[in-house]
């Protein structure tokens, strides 16, 4: 498929899914109701629309964050949710909640971002010392590292009776999203969009440090910028909707295979495909046991794991 055709089909898919997402719910809303029924209109504007926007913003920005993370780690098999970024963000909020209870959301967010930055920087330093001939060590290190931090979060939460809260950060879902609870996600979306301005720089950094220096890039500055984008996106999504696995892993890999790694082309497609995937899974979760919901994280876990295994199988040698 040509890059333009991919772009167009992703746009169509996203539009279709968005309409479906706006219409599907425990209480049916027909398009005509919006004109004549104030209660339906309220349900739409305060519930359906925010939820749909939240899903799109989350999917798009997480997929972009995954792509950037893969460039930073120089490995295709990492993403913020499996390499300690999301776990660090959660740890940040837990520690903040214990140290200074009742902080406003924006302060929580800042704390989570700072923790995510630190946690990811530590991960990147760790993997930069791994032998390049063993690309699988990078995701493994990430899993263990993320697992350890996740365990610390659970332990702290258990000791302090915060497990319920932790659950909302760890298991991402959108059923609680209403107007006033999702707007932070625009910042995540903005961070992902800003990455497009540095598309060339990020592509070059993906060629390695030597190539980047040779082309006159401040390698560390670009890395730091990427790190910031990943941390902001991850922290905000963890705080607002919770951890959503696999989007950041699966989407960039598929787009890379179809369209290559030139981020000028890849970034918009990764963002669109991320939104499509998460929106599709959210819809599926809402429809499978209608009128009950399956959390999107669970649906994605099943679908994403399948796709990931397939990726591992078809592409064993191009991990680096």
């Amino acid at each position: 498929m040509t890059p333009r055709a991919t772009f167009a089909s992703l746009c169509c898919l996203l539009a279709l899914l968005s309409v479906a997402s706006l219409l599907v719910g425990a209480q049916g809303i027909a398009p005509t109701d919006l004109l004549f029924d104030p209660q339906a209109r309220h349900l739409f504007l305060a519930g359906r629309l925010p939820r749909t926007l939240a899903v799109i913003l989350t999917g798009a920005s997480l997929a972009v964050a995954g792509l950037i993370m893969q460039i930073l780690a120089r490995n295709r098999f990492v993403e913020p949710a499996t390499a300690g970024t999301a776990q660090s963000a959660a740890l940040g909020i837990v520690v903040l909640t214990l140290a200074a209870p009742g902080l406003p959301m924006i302060a929580q967010m800042a704390g989570a971002t700072l923790a995510a930055l630190t946690g990811t920087a530590v991960f990147l330093v760790m993997v930069s010392r791994l032998p390049v001939q063993q690309p699988m060590l990078v995701p493994l290190t990430g899993l263990v590292y993320g697992g350890v931090i996740g365990a610390a979060v659970t332990f702290l939460a258990y000791e302090n009776d915060l497990l319920q809260f932790v659950d909302t950060w760890i298991n991402g879902e959108f059923s609680a999203i209403v107007r006033g609870r999702y707007e932070m996600l625009w910042i995540a979306g903005l961070a992902a969009a800003l990455a497009y301005l540095a598309a060339d720089q990020l592509t070059i950094v993906g060629l390695g440090r030597d190539a980047a220096v040779n082309l006159g890039l401040g390698y560390r500055q670009v890395m730091a910028l990427g790190l910031l984008a990943v941390s902001v996106v991850t922290a905000i999504t963890v705080v607002t909707v919770g951890m959503i696995p696999f989007v950041g892993l699966v989407v960039p890999n598929i787009v890379s295979r179809l369209q290559g790694d030139n981020l000028r082309q890849a970034l918009p497609r990764v963002a669109l495909a991320g939104a499509v995937l998460v929106l599709g899974c959210d819809l599926l979760g809402r429809l499978l046991r209608y009128p009950h919901e399956i959390p999107v994280g669970t649906v994605l876990g099943v679908i994403g794991a399948g796709v990931f295994l397939w990726l591992l199988n078809v592409r064993p040698r191009h991990a680096g």
Partner: peptide
Amino acid sequence: ATADIAKRLAILRQEQAPLGRLT
């Protein structure tokens, strides 16, 4: 400034890191 040097000097390394999928 490294950006200035890049306009005056270019290097081909003996070993190149994997290049990824660029045309």
